[in-house]
């Protein structure tokens, strides 16, 4: 299945990637090739086969409700792009 320009733009918006006009054309081509490969799935006789999300189909192991973390803010923020007074900063969001 081929993708059109609009679809590529929509996907890029959802994924927060900038795609200019040249990129868009290239993506249409490359993603179209990959989708052609993926479309081989259509041939699979899946009927009402249950989807397999995890190979071993185990169930969750639950953790005790205990506070085990300590404040590591300084270590975590050491490589952060922009912080002030312990906050992470981003360009102002107009609400």
């Amino acid at each position: 299945m081929a993708l059109d320009k609009n679809t590529v733009d929509q996907i890029a918006t959802l994924a927060r990637l900038s795609v200019d006009a040249d990129d868009n054309a290239a993506y249409q081509d490359e993603l179209g090739q990959i989708l052609a490969l993926v479309d081989q799935l259509d041939a699979a006789a899946t009927g009402d086969v249950a989807p397999l999300a995890h190979p071993l189909e185990l169930t969750a192991r639950l953790r005790a409700d205990e506070v085990s973390e300590t404040d590591q803010r300084d270590a975590f923020q050491a490589t952060a792009p922009a912080v002030a007074s312990g906050y992470y900063l981003v360009p102002k969001v107009i609400d």
Binding site: L41, A44, A50, L52
Partner: peptide, 14 residues
């Protein structure tokens, strides 16, 4: 069509 189908195929492969 894609994700669910692929997960079904996964079971067939297993």
């Amino acid at each position: 069509a894609y994700y669910l189908k692929a997960q079904q195929v996964r079971r067939l492969i297993r």
